[in-house]
Design a protein around this nucleic acid. Structure first.
Lengths: 335, 335
DNA sequence: CGGTCGCCTGAGAGCGCTCTCAACGGCGCT
DNA sequence: AGCGCCGTTGAGAGCGCTCTCAGGCGACCG
């Protein structure tokens, strides 16, 4: 930097001003400095800058999920799940124009030690926190740290934190309505894990809407949001209720598994049994028949999380706010 | 830090020594300092540390792929592809014990401006570079920057850089041998993009092995490593060569697409046509029938990349080295 | 008992940047 | 013509840490 200053015949302060685009620099001088920068091949040292600005220009994407005994499969599941992929994609694209980079940190939702230490050390300016499990204490811990954060779903305990969510119950209702409109009368559902709010809300939304339409009891089986889990759940469901003609599955991956089973069993979809998924992830297009599903704009939601986070970082005292997206029904071939 | 020093009755230098685990500290003093750290809730400032150590304790995972016109789908494809997911998982798990974090940076392989600037600024200590396209200049640019790097495949131009790869030709040969052993005699292949070495090597390995076994010409269609691409390629192949009974597909995703087509067409797998994939990704288990495939230990390869990178970072002058993994055949139901 | 060696510790100089504050010069006003 | 103000620049003080180097003290040896 001293070199640049000397080459341009100005002080370090002025070089700094040019680099940071301060308006109060004479245009001739600005030009000279820029030429000097180009000539010397000068590149600012980010550590030194961070030290004084207290900004790192990066944010963490923390994915907090219950660990499996075997850590290997845990990471594999996380990074292979299209849901998290879409989140990463959405966040990346929103952050890019701000020149902010993303540090991806998967963590066991029962042991936040490492992550908390990382965050406290000031590596990042803020956190995008993907945490869905009810008993997960990370949202609260992050909140207590006082570091800017946005959570991916309405926190279960009332924390003053910004979050972005989709109207889960409305989504379930859209599915129920569609199945009803098709003429299905023996409805059932494969729910998500019931210890996570989105799992619960989709189940409850589905049931309570149907209750209002004269279906007081609707069979359900709990799934785990994986393809294999969906297949197993569908099998159980069919054993107990062989006559169902309409099925709402709480995410696309499980729906894909269910479709596979129906195919193996020779049940025609949607003629024998209509299936509606949830997410509208790429999995919905990998099914046969193509999956009718409730669209959740995950990329846009992640981008919104990023924008809200940027706002929090820019104006520290800012009050938390929540943004709720509307789901929509995407009708394809399975229902 | 001054607070801690005062509380423990020592100098800042000693506090620093304790934090960094220097051996030459009296155990009583060490204890006092640790207590002081706990009491004051002191957390080191990473920016200040980076400024003097010139280490950031993070590395970049740069994924360089040709962009699509629409950037949105580009990011989506990257982060939804299980291959990249496995890489991320493998790298993360290898880096975690070193307390190194991963900054994920997708980039258009034709415009490296942003990435290069990022790397030059010293944000990261090294780069894991996922780049497969032949004409991609990023490996060379990174090499010229002089920053520690490991590439995911043998670079096409001879650059003195470390890389990790799998024996592509051997993998293709395993597939060919297996199809032959099953009794298939009308063989064909869906290749990967032919402007990327792995695509070329798998095709060439397949063909040249078969040539040696009395099959001088083997039909092939070029695919794009996506499910939809695989389905389209299979359709084209079947149009021109309706009688093939053994098919090698250059990755699992395309194989899944092909299987889907065969199912729609009523071709039985493996009885009418045997199919062997490549990768052994999660997609292989999402197919019906379960996919026989050439296993590429992607997670282990990514972990090895990380280890090699750590070594380069630790000892700057270290000579580049390459590690080649052996593929293996995983026999399931499709062949 | 004195000298010397070696182990620990403390003092202090940076690392490379930003940012405040003061100085300077030119301009417009009275 | 003098005064004051604004716009622009430079000087210099940190930001919080590491690390070298010198000094002190105890131990061991002669």
């Amino acid at each position: 930097m001293d070199q640049v200053a000397e080459a341009a015949g100005v002080s370090r302060a002025t070089v700094s001003r040019v680099i940071n685009g301060a308006p109060s620099v004479d245009s001739k001088i600005r030009e000279m400095v820029q030429r000097a920068i180009a000539d010397t091949g000068y590149v600012p040292n980010v550590a030194a800058r961070s030290l004084v600005t207290r900004r790192s220009n990066s944010v963490a994407l923390v994915i907090s999920e219950p660990d499996r005994p075997d850590n290997h499969s845990f990471l594999n599941r996380i990074f292979t799940d299209p849901y998290f992929g879409r989140i990463t994609a959405g966040a990346t694209s929103a952050l890019r124009p701000h020149d902010i980079h993303l540090v991806v940190i998967p963590t066991d939702s029962t042991d936040h030690h490492q992550v908390v230490r990382y965050l406290r050390q000031g590596h990042v300016d803020g956190v995008l926190l993907i945490s869905s499990h009810e008993q997960d204490t990370l949202p609260r811990q992050v909140h207590d740290l006082g570091i800017p954060a946005v959570v991916s779903a309405r926190p279960t305990s009332p924390i003053a934190v910004s979050y972005v969510d989709v109207d889960q119950r409305l989504g379930a209702r859209l599915a129920a309505e569609h199945l009803l409109n098709r003429g299905c009368r023996a409805l059932a559902t494969i729910s998500g894990p019931l210890d996570i709010p989105s799992g619960l809300d989709r189940l409850d939304g589905f049931r309570s809407f149907l209750a209002g339409r004269g279906f007081p009891t609707v069979p359900s089986v709990e799934g785990d949001f994986t393809r294999a889990g969906g297949e197993a759940a569908a099998r159980r469901l069919l054993t107990d209720f062989p006559d169902i003609d309409g099925l709402f599955v709480a995410n696309d991956l499980m729906a894909e598994g269910a479709l596979r089973l129906f195919q193996d069993l020779g049940r025609r979809v949607p003629d024998d049994i209509a299936v509606v998924g949830f997410d509208d992830s790429s999995a919905a297009l990998d099914c046969r028949p193509l999956l009718t599903t409730v669209r959740q704009p995950v990329e846009e939601m992640a981008a919104e999380m990023a924008e809200v986070l940027m706002a929090h970082i820019a104006t520290p005292g800012r009050l938390p706010r929540s943004v709720t997206f509307q789901p929509s029904l995407v009708i394809r071939d399975s229902a």
